[in-house]
Each structure stands twice: as C-alpha cells, then as structure tokens.
Amino acid sequence: MNFYSIRHLTRFRYAQPVRESIMEVHMHPRTDEAQHCLSFSLSVSPRCRVFSYRDHYGNNVQHFDIPGEHNQLVILAESVIEQHLMDPLPTALPPSAWQDLADQVEDGDYGEMLLPSQFTQDSAALRQLAAELRVSRAEDPLTVVRELTESLYRYFEYVPRSTRVDSPIDEAILSRKGVCQDFTHTMIALLRSLGIPARYVSGYLYRGSDDHDRSTPDATHAWVEALLPGLNWVGFDPTNNLVAGLRHIRTAIGRDYADVPPTHGIFRGDAESDLYVAVKVEASSTAPVLDRRQPVPDDWTVLVERAREAPPRPAQSASAQRAQQQQ
C-alpha cells in the first residue's frame, strides 16, 4: 500500500491559565524522492495565525503564538502522503566503497552529519559499546550499517518511558534499555565515529496487521539515515531491525532530536502542564479523501513514548539572571 493518512493530535493542559504561548512544530511530512506529501493541515486551538518556513534541512516548520490566557493548547496535524517504492538494496557493496564514500564526503556538504551533536556526543560508555559490538570499518559500509542496526536491536531492550526527552545516550547504553530516540542517537554517534555521515529522521511508522514491530504502534517514531556511496541516504531502523521502507513516513531530518522535536515552545505563567499525544496512521492503496469534519475520536492510541516533558520555562533566580547579563 502506497498511501498513508496521518492524524497527529497534541494537547497541552495547564493547571493554571498561561499566556503568550509561542510554539514551533515539526509535523509536516517531507516531500522528496521517496515520499510525496499530498496534503497537510494543522489545526490549533485557541485560534491563531499559523506561519511556516522551510529550514535549512528542507523541513517544513510551522509556528504560531497565542497572546491571551488559555488553559489548554491543542494542535492537530493531518496529512496524506504517497510513498514510492525504492530499488531494493544490494546485499553488499564492493570493498572500494569506503574510498567512494570518502570521495563523496570530500566533495559534498556532509560535514554537519559527521560531527557530534547535542545528543550524539562521544563518551566512555559509547566507546565501550563500540568495542563490545565490534564496530569498525570492516567489509563495506552497507554491511557495517546493516550489522550495526541488528546488533543495536539485540543490545537494547525496548522499554517505553524508560528515558526522558533530554536524557543523554549514556543512560540508555548503560541500562541497555530505552526508546527509539536512544537507539537512533546511539547508532548515529557510532556511524559518525566511523566516518559515515548519519542523520536523525523523525516520523511515523505504520503498522499493518501482519507487522510485528517492537515500537509502540501508531506513534511518532525515529530512525537513522546513513549516507552510502551510490545509494545516497538510506534509512535504517534500529528499534525494529528494519531497513526503512514504505511504512516509514518521514516528517523531518536533522542532526539529532534537538533539531526536530515535534513541538517546541514556551509560555508565560507558572503552571504545571500535562501533555497528551495521539497518532493515527492509516494505509490505503488509493489516495484517501480526508474528511475534515470528522470529530477527533476519543479512542485514539495514546502515545507513551517520549514527549512527556513540558518545554522548560525560563524561570530564573536573580543571581542566574545577573550571571547571564554578564554573558
């Protein structure tokens, strides 16, 4: 099946009214070689004007602000996308592929995807893991990436809510459990250390009745794209030990999660917030018609992965503020 429709509902509820909320969202599926976004809509309550721009990774970003007081903020993203079947990957690449990769990196703009980023920092735990999994520039790049996908799949236990949005990868590596972001960040850090450009993909994974994925169904998902000579960027999903295919729907790419969180914002007010996220992905073999009047059903699958934390508030002590002013 080539067509997918996605409804992605996010709701922030505040214990006290807040004001001057301002938010950016990465929910607009990408349009590129393998995937075509046929329609996208974003509904926000309270009503406001939604603006959008394209960031330098080619992601479509929406943003808006709500000046008045509100007790809750609801964001509903609806999209329809069409996937194109890509040629199957070869079983392996020739040994010369390492040199081809080096040449491609030398000539192209891949530098950012080779350097450590916020969530993919080098650490003792990471080096230990690399030794344990025997990560090295063996065979050819494709085989290395494939084997790493599988060994990470086996190394980690998938445990929803075992880590937080801002957990460093060390936490997951040392406890051997985590969620898709952790597996993805770990794999990116290891690939970059081998000189293979690797980037973070944020999106959704459709689960049909015959699929037996480990990750939570109908949820936001994350996986890795690695640059391979002659094949360009290829997606690998260490959470489910898969090569990304038709069921992997891509919303945004970045160096890591920090570049592309689904929602990112701040507000004024002193209130605890409670976040609820629900995603529904449906597949069809023909282009579906989105019924815009359809009410949001209550029985959606509740996402239990990630995005538990409310965005940090810039509440600060006077001394911290003084220190900042001295920059």
Binding site: E20, I22, P314, Q316, Q321, Q324, Q325
Partner: peptide, 15 residues
C-alpha cells in the same frame, strides 16, 4: 531568543 537559541535565556525575546 529562547525559542531559536538557548531555551533558558531570560535576556531575549521569544519569537
């Protein structure tokens, strides 16, 4: 700008 850069800044203007 706490939205675009350091989220903990108290010196900037969100947006």
């Amino acid at each position: 700008d706490p939205l675009a850069f350091r989220p903990d800044t108290a010196l900037g203007c969100a947006g």
